[in-house]
Design a binder for these strands. Structure first.
Lengths: 252, 252
DNA sequence: TAAAATAACGCATTTTCACGCAAAATTTAA
DNA sequence: TTAAATTTTGCGTGAAAATGCGTTATTTTA
């Protein structure tokens, strides 16, 4: 049985049963579990299924992908969020990009912080609704459901009239040469407008995002003033970024 | 059953029953309470539920006042929402005002409905993210936390360039002579712009809102094309409104 | 205040995963 | 067609995840 054939078969089973187990597939297909896992890994990267411990599940459309990402490396994201939240000074105007990491930042802002937050992410706006003294400015636009952010000219236009102190960007992919890149063109445009509207730009990145690139480039690395990562990330992996002039923040 | 599967199941139960008990889940899922607790802990960290002694509750979507209102007359609101949701025809462009009743409407829209929804309410935008075929246009602006809606010139400006088929308005106060009125000036402005941007206007009102008035008048009663109320409301109470030319809808 | 229920913590066990390496299979090039 | 290069696969190892149990703390209730 050909590799491609086998993978097709896995997808069929998955759509019939809504889930597959690595162990069962290994038995049924007469290949080792390693091979099955490799298949699942490939298929997951292609977005055709959702890997979980023990096998895989159907990728539920739209918002599910967001919920999934919320579960990825939650510890690391929380560590980053805590550090990043401390960078916001009272009275500042902050542009907060959408994303699961920035959502954590919003949650970790002190409840009594006086500030203005500009965001294109409905979940972040809701999280900040509990912060009495934070003024929330929501950027409108078409809701891009995969990332739960508003995109389009409306958002970009609104950003033109905003001069923020800092901008916190959840970077999807970061590469010393390629720069900051994302998987969606609309998102790239909005992020670029956010960067243009702030004096300082803070990038938030989990380790998995380092040294990777996506299809749409937002800006070169030097655009960032700070790069916040988890304390667990090896300094060697960050050397290339530090060399480009960024200040690396791993813990405050 | 896979771990991820189990956690999804817990979330489903939670959304259905508004609460879950560790002991019940342990029985139902045939796993130890430890495991259930671990699941709840993880899900809570992801912000998907709120842990309490004995189990978990739904995450408060936002501020207390909003959550409180969501608890007021839930049956009545649901009845109204079901009727109102049926008024949306495939392919239409719908302006959906913020509010607890309109949020229910969003939730009751068919999952396969093809439509465009324009809203200034982050909770509604999020609820609609699960509807694959609904395009969501979010109106930006300053977040008015008490009602969780975006207000201000940005929202009003955006509405100027929209011609919707219908507009669904959660009315705060309704009075035959005063008209539609609300407690906040900014909200009044936005609602007026919404009305101006739609061919038909549908008002949603629980019984408690009939024959009351608030400080800021949005528009006269005749602005409404339909008034949707719960079937439990006595027709006599609605006579005055019917006399003004509205079509009363109590159940479909 | 005491008893009961619920939670948290540490630990051991089992299962599942990831990674490197070498053999086998497949594709590409000479 | 043969040889070289690439890909795929299976296995061994160690790491990580998931789970249940015993114990101790905390909260709730009577």
């Amino acid at each position: 049985m050909l590799t491609t054939e086998r993978r097709q078969f896995i997808l069929e089973i998955l759509h019939r049963n809504k889930k597959v187990l690595s162990s069962e597939l290994s038995n049924e297909l007469k290949v080792s579990e390693d091979t099955v896992r490799r298949d699942l890994r490939e298929l997951a990267e292609a977005g055709l299924l959702q890997r979980v411990h023990g096998g895989a599940l159907l990728t539920s459309p739209a918002t599910a992908s967001y919920a999934d990402r919320q579960k990825q490396a939650p510890k690391e994201k929380e560590a980053i969020a805590k550090s990043a939240a401390k960078l916001v000074r009272p009275g500042q105007v902050v542009i907060l990009d959408g994303g699961t990491t920035t959502l954590q930042v919003a949650r970790h802002l002190p409840l009594d912080l006086v500030a203005t937050v500009v965001t294109n992410s409905p979940p972040i706006a809701l999280a900040l609704a509990e912060h009495d003294r934070i003024e929330v400015i929501m950027l409108g636009g078409r809701l891009y459901k995969k990332a739960l952010v508003n995109v389009g000219t409306t958002a970009i236009e609104s950003l033109r009239s905003i001069r923020a102190d800092i901008c916190m960007l959840g970077v999807c992919s970061l590469h010393p040469e390629v720069g900051i890149s994302v998987a969606n063109l609309d998102e790239a445009h909005v992020k670029r407008a956010m960067i243009a509207g702030a004096a300082e730009v803070i990038g938030l990145a989990t380790e998995a995002k380092l040294d990777t690139a996506a299809n749409y480039v937002v800006a070169p690395i030097q655009t960032l003033t700070y790069l916040v990562t988890a304390p667990s990330v090896d300094l060697k992996r960050l050397a290339a970024y530090a060399a480009l002039g960024l200040t690396i923040i791993q813990e405050i």
